[in-house]
Nucleic acid binder design. Structure first.
Length: 118
DNA sequence: ACAGTGACAACAT
DNA sequence: TATGTTGCCACTG
């Protein structure tokens, strides 16, 4: 459903500054454990959105291995690394992030229900 | 309706 | 570790 993107954005907006999560974890939070690729696609679609989506902290979404996925795009991997460092996240020269330190715990079911509509 | 497209993830080398 | 393969799914034209 088209609404899936909106649900993804709602979750991403809840990721606190200085924390990160993965595409797959967001998919699981929304009850679609195998929709990780679609989450990545939703992030990519942000570049075509208006200023109403400027508050979505896309830089806080990385892959399950704790690495920045994007390369050579409008929202470049380097820009993602800079934004994360600006909020205190240590990103090494290989674009790796220590999930033991920076992984976001995620939302509780009540908050998920609020996003998915019940 | 349908095939193509990824900012994924799990698993196998 | 680092690649390569395979399964996935929402969205698009």
């Amino acid at each position: 459903m088209r609404n899936f993107y909106e649900q993804v954005y709602a979750v991403v907006r809840r990721i606190p500054r200085g924390k990160v999560t993965s595409y797959g974890r967001i998919a699981r939070m929304l009850g679609r454990p195998r929709a990780a690729r679609a989450v990545g696609y939703a992030m990519n679609a942000l570049k075509d959105k208006d200023e109403a989506y400027a508050d979505v902290p896309w830089q806080r979404v990385i892959n399950s291995q704790g690495r920045i996925s994007i390369v050579n795009r409008e929202y470049s991997a380097n820009r993602q690394a800079e934004l994360l460092r600006a909020e205190g996240v240590v990103v090494d020269e290989n674009l790796r992030i220590n999930l033991d330190v920076y992984l976001w715990e995620g939302l509780h079911w009540v908050e998920i229900d609020d996003i998915t509509g019940g």
